[in-house]
């Protein structure tokens, strides 16, 4: 079996966002593998460690810097990587076509991808890839178990937790708490150096963009930040209650 894990590289959540010339300035900032995707890489590894025979291929579609994220995934234990290099911002629907093409060529049976992108806040990629391939998608999974070619598990639905079963192939989207991603060990970091990263160009996939971005604007709402000492709980509470009444019209 072959498992693809789609990964992206994004601004570390702890870094502040600075907008210049309508783009988020990444220069000198800490960039990391999107944590949402990292859960997918981890889960693929665990599926293999629980006994499934699988080759795990990580796929990144983005600028040259994505290679760092691909290396991290290889150090975690993925077998090889495919890097479709482009500086273009490709919308998730257009991107899904590329992923589907790779999945077909690689004859993948399972595709992992993060539930939501930490930069463009999109949740579309997993479902869109599944649609291209005419596969089912299990989104927002919180527990997975592979029995033969049947994938069982639990996922977060809008109104509760759903238990499911599905026959492979399938797309799976991942989120926090599905697992705790491992740190690469030092020996594995050294080993990853020799693993293959295949480079391809976006052009060879002939994608047509579906959405164009006109840039971003920072939204820094100034906050009052009036912080008081609450050791005298009653006094602090009454200050807060008064403030809610006067400034917010609550309990008016």
């Amino acid at each position: 079996m072959r498992i693809l894990a789609i990964i992206r590289q994004v601004l570390d959540a702890e870094e502040s966002v600075y907008v210049d010339n309508r783009t988020v300035d990444l220069k000198g900032r800490k960039l990391v593998m999107d944590t949402m995707d990292e859960y997918g890489v981890e889960e693929a590894l665990r599926i293999r460690e629980r006994g499934a025979e699988a080759e795990i291929v990580v796929v990144g579609i983005g600028p040259a810097r994505f290679e760092e994220a691909l290396r991290s995934a290889l150090s975690m234990g993925a077998d090889r990587a495919i890097h479709v290099e482009t500086d273009q911002e490709v919308d998730p629907i257009a991107l899904s076509g590329v992923v589907a093409a790779i999945a077909r060529k690689e004859e993948a049976q399972m595709i992992f991808c993060g539930g939501q992108q930490a930069d463009w806040d999109s949740q579309a990629l997993g479902a869109a890839v599944a649609e291209h391939l005419d596969w089912p998608a299990l989104t927002w999974t919180r527990k997975l178990e592979l029995k033969g070619t049947t994938l069982a598990g639990q996922r977060d639905a809008e109104d509760g937790v759903e238990s499911f079963e599905v026959d492979l192939p399938a797309v799976v989207t991942t989120q926090q708490d599905l697992n705790e991603p491992r740190y690469p060990t030092l020996p594995n970091i050294m080993k990853a150096k020799r693993k293959e990263i295949r480079r391809e160009t976006l052009e060879s996939f002939g994608v047509a963009l579906k959405v164009r971005s006109h840039g971003v604007e920072a939204q820094n709402r100034e906050r009052l930040r009036e912080v008081i000492d609450g050791r005298d709980a009653a006094a602090a509470a009454s200050q807060l209650v008064a403030m809610l009444r006067e400034k917010a019209g609550v309990m008016a």
């Binding site: 906050r223 930040r225 000492d229 609450g230 050791r231 602090a236 509470a237 403030m243 309990m251």
Partner: peptide, 24 residues
Amino acid sequence: IFRVCDFGIVGNVESVVPAMIEQI
């Protein structure tokens, strides 16, 4: 959270919140 708040109380929720509930 205090960096993005308009109004904050540094205190134990166990004492501040019951006091609020009582006053309201």
